[in-house]
Amino acid sequence: MSLLELENVTLKFGGLTAVDNLSFSVEEGEVFAIVGPNGAGKSTVFNLISRFYTPVNGSIRFDGHDLLAEKASSVASYGVARTFQNIELFEHATVLENLLVGRHRHRGSNFLTELFFTPSVRKQELQSRHFVEEIIDFLDLQAYREKRIAGLPYGVRKVVEVARALATDPKLLLLDEPASGLSVEETTDMRWWIDDIRRQMGITVLMVEHDMGLVSGVSDRVLAMADGARLALGTPSEVQSDPAVIEAYLGKAS
């Protein structure tokens, strides 16, 4: 059984079919990339998995659970974490606080124990902190730990988003254009991090990315989309040489 399975998923925004009868599945332990021109519906696929939108038909299953039966805030509790194409951090909180929000799904305390900050809450907070510190070390964020997001450079924010997603301790990590807007060096870092996330942490990665160097460098399989539908699916080199993909990117050769 695959970790994530989308079957015949369709979503319409008014007259526009953003995702058109799309099926694919992501296996445990792989890095799976989605490519396609702007407006192809890639981010919409992520938003469907996150349950921000409900498809008109089709099914989305994760780890044996029917995600369509869940609300958006429950998706994280099954072990799905994500980043956003246009960074969605908690602007007026520090990097550390942002990452600690990622621990929310492991919360064992309740209103009353937190109100009195009982020893069990204290213990939980220390554990959260230990977990988050490992991620800070992993992604080299030590220098920014106490900084507010509002003053951070773009490249750092992108990394903080990945860190916050990792703080949830996910099984599946959705990365929406992790390298867009990054410099060449930052993109190289991101590449090694994605590799390490898969190999060291054993987290399955589903990512949307335009940088084909990054895509063919880290991913096992690639799905090419256009107009909400599947164009091709296969290894990076298979997809890159697929005539339909070349046509979608370059236009029909006359």
């Binding site: 996150s50 921000f52 956003f84 969605e88 951090l89 908690f90 007026h92 909180a93 929000v101 949830t168």
Partner: peptide, 17 residues
Amino acid sequence: RSFIAVRDSEVSAQAMG
């Protein structure tokens, strides 16, 4: 922290559970 998360970004608060 979840109060602050809701204040600063409802979508990502949701995505964090």
